[in-house]
């Protein structure tokens, strides 16, 4: 049997939710044991939470580099894959100005695809397993899921009762 309990508190406004997070911190419940779910993006500062990490920007930057290389290859590599390169209108086989267009498009395409891939990877999407969630969140409420030691449960629930918060 687990020695921790998962509790849920639901709030209608940001201020009491922020106060609740502060109280949980005072009770030595770590940020890693708190999960906040909301129907709109709420800045971490408002709730006194640490800045959430994301790899989306880094992945996007990496994707941009890959795209740039793909553009380079398409423009300056593929013509030489053929035995007889085709020269059009006396132009160079691998001219730079049209190459810039190809490299630009490929860079942007791969940057954006990688950013989307980053969202899927970082958020573990798609994920259809049942997880901590209450549907009221999409009605604008803020849900705080937190794990606390079994022994602390009564104390936390008592504290919540005093402040008329909804603990489940």
């Amino acid at each position: 049997m687990s020695d921790t309990t998962l509790l849920l508190a639901v709030f209608e406004e940001i201020d009491p939710a922020a106060n609740a997070v502060e109280k949980l911190h005072e009770m030595n419940i770590a940020d890693d044991d708190i999960n906040i779910i909301s129907g709109v993006p709420i800045a971490h500062k408002m709730l006194g939470r640490p800045h959430p990490w994301t790899n989306v920007s880094k992945l996007s930057l990496g994707g941009a580099f890959v795209g740039f290389c793909v553009g380079l290859f398409l423009n300056f590599g593929t013509p030489y894959l053929y035995a007889d390169t085709v020269s059009v209108g006396g132009q160079y086989v691998t001219p730079v100005p049209p190459g810039l267009i190809i490299m630009f498009e490929m860079t942007m395409l791969f940057a954006m695809l990688s950013a989307f891939l980053g969202v899927l990877l970082d958020s573990s999407f798609p994920n259809y397993r049942p997880l901590e969630y209450v549907a009221e969140v999409s009605d604008g409420k803020i849900a705080i899921f937190f794990r606390c030691p079994n022994g602390e449960k009564q104390k936390i629930c008592g504290c919540a009762y005093k402040t008329r918060r909804n603990i489940r």
Partner: peptide
């Protein structure tokens, strides 16, 4: 896709939306 609205999901999503807004 299983979206719940966790802080992390919002952060990843809004970061990507900002990247898209500038890149597109």
């Amino acid at each position: 896709l299983g979206f719940r609205g966790t802080e992390g999901e919002w952060r990843h999503l809004t970061t990507a939306m900002n990247i898209f807004a500038f890149a597109i």
